[in-house]
Amino acid sequence: MSDCELIYTYDGTFDGFLSCVFSVYENREIPRRISETKNLQNRLDCEYKHITTDREKSDRVYASIRDKISYRAIRNVFYAFLSDKPNKERLILDYIRVGYQYGRRVDNHLLLNPVNFVVSAERFVRGEAHRMLGFVRFSELEQGVYYSAIQPKNNVLPIIAPHFAHRFANMPWLIHDRGRNLCLVHLSKNWYITDVAGLPALKFSDDETKYRKLWRQFYKTLEIKERHNEKLQKSFVPLYYRRYLTEFY
């Protein structure tokens, strides 16, 4: 066993991850890594164990973190899980373990690696999600559906969904995460996230060009030329995010 590393595999969902946490405590073992099945590189010197997602187990872990550590902790765990950081699962597991040790004061232990990781990953994800609230650009399609493409670094769709569902409650709309091929769909007051391989060619409504033109003109007019400051602008709208922003293309 000593030269054989234990690796958990799971389906990549948050429930799947929490089921892994359940198994850690159930089997009293700590895997070297927890890895999404599809990212797996099989190595001979490792022992692989696939953890099947079990809603009942994940709900128990969820409630336990919330009640025994803190509401903030379960939020940290969820947000950090949505980040794109490598090896996040194992670090989050360590955070949970530290959390059970210290209870609700866990976030004071910023100098411990897993806490530091989770707290900063949470901040990174929250920051990008907030940015996306502003950077989503809907286009009106022929059928009256509003479509938007984004490409965030983290998987922010579950975080931004309630905001848009509340704000545009009576509109059918889609937010398409191009990097992950996920689509947030809002139809008849319900939203869900689904995988999409590709979308059919989009046909825009007649008004679309007009309002894009108006928006670009408004944006252009708004700058005070005497105060031009590209560096400052770049720090707020990094080039990475400009691809899908109407005013930049």
Binding site: Y219, L222, R227, H228, N229, E230, V237, L245
Partner: peptide, 10 residues
């Protein structure tokens, strides 16, 4: 929520 920033950084 800020939606974009102009060339003067506002």
């Amino acid at each position: 929520i800020c939606h974009t920033w102009t060339g003067d950084g506002r």
